[in-house]
Structure formats: structure tokens, C-alpha cells
Amino acid sequence: MKIKLNNREEIIDTEILTVSNFLELKKFTFRMRIVKINGVFIPKEKYDVTEILDGDDVQMIYLMSGG
């Protein structure tokens, strides 16, 4: 399937992909992040059950301590 991650195209060789699968696949291990799919905020507790579908626009922001 083809998706967009932070406005860049990504091709992923799988049919079913949850947010958790995607983070694992991309080796995104950093703990604090925001995920939005097609403009919808995805709460952390829904990463396991929220599927990313072909054509989806995924936005991810890493949150770093400091201020």
C-alpha cells in the first residue's frame, strides 16, 4: 500500500497495518509522539486497533522535552 508520512510518500509491503505495526516496522521507538491520520488525532490507547489504509495521510510529531 501507498501512504503519506509527513507529506512524503511511503510504500509499505503489507495489507493490514495498525499504527502500532507501523511504528514497529519503521523502528520508531521514541515514546512521546502525536499521530494524526487524515487530520484525525489518534490517542495512544488506540494505536493497536487503528488501521492505516492505502492512501492515508499520516502525520507524526515527536515531542522532545525542553522549554
Binding site: 512521546m32 502525536i34 488525532f41 490517542p43 495512544k44 510529531i61 515531542l63 522532545m64 525542553g66 522549554g67
Partner: peptide
């Protein structure tokens, strides 16, 4: 930062939020 983002995006969805991340 994460708690605020989640709260604003879900409870105050019409209000734009400006985050800061990475300034060390």
C-alpha cells in the same frame, strides 16, 4: 506536551494548538 495536545485535539477541536518540540 503530549497530554495537552491530546486534550486540546479531542476536547477543544476547533482551537489551533502551537507546539514546541526540540530546542536544547
Amino acid at each position: 506536551k503530549e497530554m495537552l495536545a491530546e486534550t486540546v485535539q479531542t476536547k477543544l477541536p476547533g482551537i489551533p494548538l502551537v507546539l514546541a518540540s526540540g530546542l536544547a
